[in-house]
């Protein structure tokens, strides 16, 4: 059962106008941590945000955000993706579109809906029917060779985030080489190196989102 309507109350009619971005990437790369780091930045900037999380068979990430205290719990909806987390963000994103529509309807003036994919592999990509722009998150601890594998997520995303850069010395990864390979396989498309837990480069990610989709700002 998908947790699309926590309160199960009628939704008032309201045009869906908020920008929608996707955040995808492998399990444990730091997608939820990135959202947790971004939310206070958007709050300081006065940007109205809501989140849709995708998990396989639970609402784990949604519950984590609802309990975090950094966002009104009503602004977080969960989609249970089942066995194919990429299907609900690419081939048939209906559940996520409905969730985003509901958030748009519930919160007039909403500016940004962040749709976090379920943890997947390097092949996952977002349908542009669902989002206007999307980020793919990989992490240093997952291995310095990830960019070389040329996964569609790494190649096709609008912004590649290489997370946990502070762990590079501890996991034997040559960070400079990893970032250089990432730039090369992406043909120069945007890339940012972050450490979400340490707050490194989060403002830059927020700037990139604002520049891409929050066009009136």
């Amino acid at each position: 059962m998908n947790d699309l309507s926590p309160s199960r109350q009628p939704v008032p009619p309201h045009p869906a106008n908020a920008a929608r971005i996707g955040i995808g990437g492998p399990v444990g790369s730091g997608k939820t941590a990135l959202i947790e780091a971004l939310l206070p930045v958007f709050q300081r900037r006065g940007i109205s945000v809501a989140v849709v999380t995708n998990d396989l068979v639970t609402a784990e990430d949604a519950e984590r955000l609802r309990r975090s205290g950094i966002i009104d719990p009503a602004r977080v909806l969960a989609v249970e993706a089942g066995a194919c987390p990429h299907t609900v963000i690419r081939e048939d994103p209906t559940l996520n579109i409905l969730a985003a529509d509901e958030l748009d309807a519930r919160f007039p003036g909403l500016e940004l809906v962040i749709i976090e994919s379920g943890g997947d592999n390097l092949a996952s990509t977002f349908s542009l029917d669902l989002v206007d722009w999307w980020i793919f998150v990989i992490d240093v601890a997952g291995g310095g060779d990830i960019p070389r594998k040329r996964g569609p997520g790494v190649l096709q995303c609008d912004l590649l985030v290489v997370n946990k850069v502070d762990l590079a010395p501890h996991v034997g990864v040559d960070l400079d080489a990893m970032l250089e390979e990432a730039r090369a396989v992406r043909g120069g498309s945007p890339l940012l190196a972050t450490a979400c837990r340490a707050g490194i480069n989060i403002e830059a990610v927020a700037d990139a989102i604002c520049a891409a989709v929050l066009i009136r700002r």
Binding site: A16, W133, I215
Partner: peptide, 23 residues
């Protein structure tokens, strides 16, 4: 073409900021 938000530039260099409703 399915993006509702994007920045584009015309053939004469005019920047356009597109922010369409989802409808």
């Amino acid at each position: 073409m399915t993006r509702r938000r994007l920045r584009v530039v015309t053939d004469r260099g005019t920047p356009c900021l597109i922010a369409l409703p989802r409808s």
